[in-house]
Design a protein around this nucleic acid. Structure first.
Lengths: 338, 338
DNA sequence: TGCCGTGGTTGAATCGTTTCATGCTGACGT
DNA sequence: ACGTCAGCATGAAACGATTCAACCACGGCA
């Protein structure tokens, strides 16, 4: 009933050659004469042979897999990042295995364990919090890691990130340049490094305009729903206390805030309040009011991270590079006077 | 510099026991005396031993991994599906490896190859097109597969899906019940089974109201952007030819259409046109105008699919079950008279 | 005629686990 | 005092691929 797994040995018998030859057909076809090649291929097809990756890995030492751990797949920034990493990896015949930590350190740790047991070639991690000790142990085990969307404070790991301070600065400067003075920053917990950096940039821009004031609203998480909740909370205030410029720590939040604002009678974007987000996800430009935002070169980040990783796989270790991309301001209707 | 991989043998030496004992510590701790247990654990910690999964798999025959291939991770329906499958799998100490086919048969085939080589316990596939031949070969190789969001026409594979004909019927019946008569169906190519089924349901509902008319608009793909394009195309028509009810084959399309409609002067939702989507993604209820939709029990689908798979892994084969969930109409503002 | 080189092929050794039949030890019952 | 038995520990065999030194056949060359 159950045809036991076909091995390279079975193929060899069927084709009337040695196992070594079959292996060569699989890995170095140019070393094999065309006649044998044909016979082996035929045998493979007839038997429905599928190479056992576990055995190959065991002998060869390492796999073709690269682990990627993101904070949240349902955030388009990360799904887009994952896709570009996958494409870049495919060019080097590597596969990306995706893990979603969901902002949870325990799940993150579990994925790192699994990847380590699988002896992946390397990992790309967008870390939840501080994972220096864990990185340390990976380093000792000789597994290269590249941090994405985050730099290692100790500079002991390569990373690909974006200058979020500059991004935050650009966003708020843009609001100020448009004449806004009562600014609100909407972000999740400032324990999240990215949020903290964008806020720091915002503060820097504010410092150049002493007459303007900045208020901070803390959202539950970085999602549309939280953004909407934050927006609705603001909307309850007396008219005079409403801001005229809002900077959200990411586009999802901004879209949520936009929804809340649009539902209020007589509060319009950008006439009454200007709104700017962060990331430039696909949704931003197709929002009801096209959303101004700070673009991060998502696919470049993914691609570069993979390249950096592959580089440090065959290169010497001890050489850690920090690549920082500059974000770009994208002004759309949500901050332009009508 | 580079500490060569620590093996179970090294641990055994260090702890002064045999390799078999270390293996038992790892897999059957209850068979080992507490003293030995401690010593081995200590040795593992000191040496930083990490079990080599390839070797384990090679010997044990199969892995703990389950392959999941979805059509598009950036569609919230699938990312939510993936998450629930992951959670269900975790309860049985299995890991889900995610692959994104991007509606591309070639990529789908590549992922199936990779998963097969990795000797996954089984696969969950949301197929791009007809993959019966491929399923046939997987079956011969003894790899269980469960189709998600699709039934196997030949009934030779288990599947977990939703009655999309019923869903399409419910959606359009709802529009008709609300008094709408000029209905438009927006979907991608009818070659996609899901689109075809929802359309069939729509037609069934229409048949009960001969005086109403149905028009079909074909969008590029099932994304927000395509929806918006389709909406803008409609908006160019003379007023008299505009529909008063629109059913979109999924929520992303519906959100795109909504954006296009809201940008038109004086065309309101639901006053002038009622709009209903499909899936009930998180975004639906938080859309500018909360979107009516047909809910699919996403997380139940993911969970059930995993359970079905695990069941057919240890159960006898030859028993294929088709589980079909009923969708549920969710009426929100986008179809209710203001 | 004998030697060498080359292109193909061979098959044993190896990777790091798990498995399992076997061996050892000490306690307990009679 | 002896047999039995439970509880642990042992270590060789096996999993299926890759690697590599050795081998073979054959044509060309001196």
């Amino acid at each position: 009933m159950d045809t036991r797994a076909v091995s390279i040995k079975d193929v060899a018998d069927r084709a009337g050659v040695a196992v070594g030859t079959v292996s060569n057909v699989l890995n170095y076809p140019e070393r094999v004469s065309t006649g044998t090649l044909d016979r082996v291929h035929q045998a493979i097809a007839e038997l429905g042979f599928v190479r056992n990756d576990a055995a190959r890995q065991l002998r060869a030492g390492l796999s073709r897999a690269i682990g990627l751990i993101v904070l949240d797949v349902s955030n388009p920034f990360f799904s887009s990042l994952a896709r570009s990493a996958e494409e870049a990896a495919a060019e080097s015949a590597s596969t990306v295995v995706l893990g979603d930590s969901g902002h949870d350190s325990a799940r993150e740790a579990r994925y790192i364990d699994v990847f380590e047991q699988q002896r992946v070639k390397g990992m790309l991690i967008s870390p939840v919090g501080d994972i220096s000790e864990r990185m340390e142990s990976l380093r000792r085990h000789g597994i290269p890691v590249v941090l994405v969307d985050r730099v290692d404070p100790h500079k002991k790991t390569s990373s690909v990130s974006v200058d979020d301070v500059a991004g935050g600065y650009a966003a708020v400067k843009h609001l100020l340049d448009e004449g806004r003075r009562r600014i609100v920053f909407v972000g999740a917990s400032p324990e999240i490094q990215q949020v903290a950096d964008r806020l720091a940039g915002a503060r820097k821009a504010m410092a150049e305009r002493p007459e303007a004031e900045l208020e901070i609203v803390e959202a539950e998480s970085m999602t549309v729903l939280s953004g909407r909740a934050a927006g609705e909370l603001m909307a309850e205030r007396p008219r005079a206390e409403l801001p005229d410029g809002i900077f959200c720590a990411n586009d999802l939040l901004a879209i949520g805030v936009m929804q809340a604002v649009l539902l209020m009678r007589g509060w319009r974007i950008p006439d009454d309040v200007a709104l700017i987000g962060y990331d430039d996800i696909d949704f931003a430009q197709s929002a009801v009011v096209p959303l101004s935002t700070v673009r991060r070169p998502t696919s470049q980040i993914g691609r570069t991270a993979i390249e950096l990783l592959l580089e440090s796989i065959d290169g010497e270790d001890g050489e850690y590079r920090q690549i920082v991309f500059q974000p770009e301001l994208i002004a759309r209707d949500s901050t332009g006077r009508a």
